[in-house]
Simulated assay, not measured.
Amino acid sequence: MNKRQCFIVDSYYQKSIHLYDTTESRWAGRTMKADSPDQERALRTGYFKETAFSALLISYTAGESIDSLIPRLEKLISSYEIYQQALAAEESETDISPLTIDDSPGHYEECVQVISLCILLHRTDLLIRFVALIDRAGYANEEYPLHELHIPSG
């Protein structure tokens, strides 16, 4: 492993990645406190999306190989899609965004990080899927024209 961050300790990385990778199985058969089944699903899938994002970031930071990051990025994009569907059901709004990039600086930062990782890992197919979730929610042709990204080939 080639550490990209000199301050990450291997034992911390190993414990963290294990925690992230076992999150879904630890929640099997359990529910989160919620006012409705739709809200519970949105909370659950949102939490799973957050852990997939954290797992990808810490794996990248720790210096894991690019080949091992690609399945994590694929899982993250799928997690965004599942989370978006759960939010849509909870809010009765078909094209709701999984990230409110106009209201939350943290969501905007997360959005840019995911876009950057898709480009860095040469996964424009995943980038297109991710940007579609945001653009369909009304961000297309706004101040955040994600659909107009010019992606370098190769």
Rank of each mutant, 00 (worst) to 15 (best):
I96F: 00
Q113V: 13
A88L: 07
Y83A: 02
P71W: 06
I70K: 13
S116W: 11
I82R: 09
Q84F: 06
Y60D: 08
F48L: 15
I115R: 07
L99G: 01
E91H: 14
S78W: 07
D67K: 11
A89S: 15
A89G: 10
I66R: 14
D95L: 07
S59A: 11
D67L: 13
K75G: 06
H107T: 04
R129V: 03
D103T: 12
L57R: 12
E90V: 01
Y80W: 09
L56P: 00
D67P: 04
S59F: 00
Y83D: 01
S59Q: 02
V112T: 15
S78Y: 08
L87I: 04
P105L: 09
Y83N: 03
E64S: 09
P71V: 04
L76R: 05
I82P: 03
Q113P: 05
V131T: 12
Y60R: 08
S104Y: 11
S59W: 00
D125V: 10
L76N: 03
K49N: 14
H122L: 12
S68G: 04
L69G: 01
L73S: 02
L69H: 04
T45V: 07
E81F: 05
K49G: 07
G106C: 04
F130T: 05
Y108R: 12
E90H: 14
L87M: 15
A55C: 10
I101G: 00
D67A: 13
P105S: 10
L73K: 02
E109I: 08
F53Y: 13
K75Y: 10
E109P: 01
L76Y: 03
T45R: 08
L121H: 09
L73R: 02
T124P: 13
E64R: 13
S97F: 06
A88F: 06
D67G: 07
F53S: 02
H107R: 09
E74P: 01
L56D: 01
L56V: 04
D67Q: 12
R123T: 06
L121D: 06
Y80D: 03
T51Y: 06
L87H: 06
Q113W: 14
L99Q: 03
E81D: 14
A86K: 00
T61D: 10
H122C: 14
L121A: 07
L120T: 15
I128A: 07
Y80R: 01
T45I: 06
A55S: 14
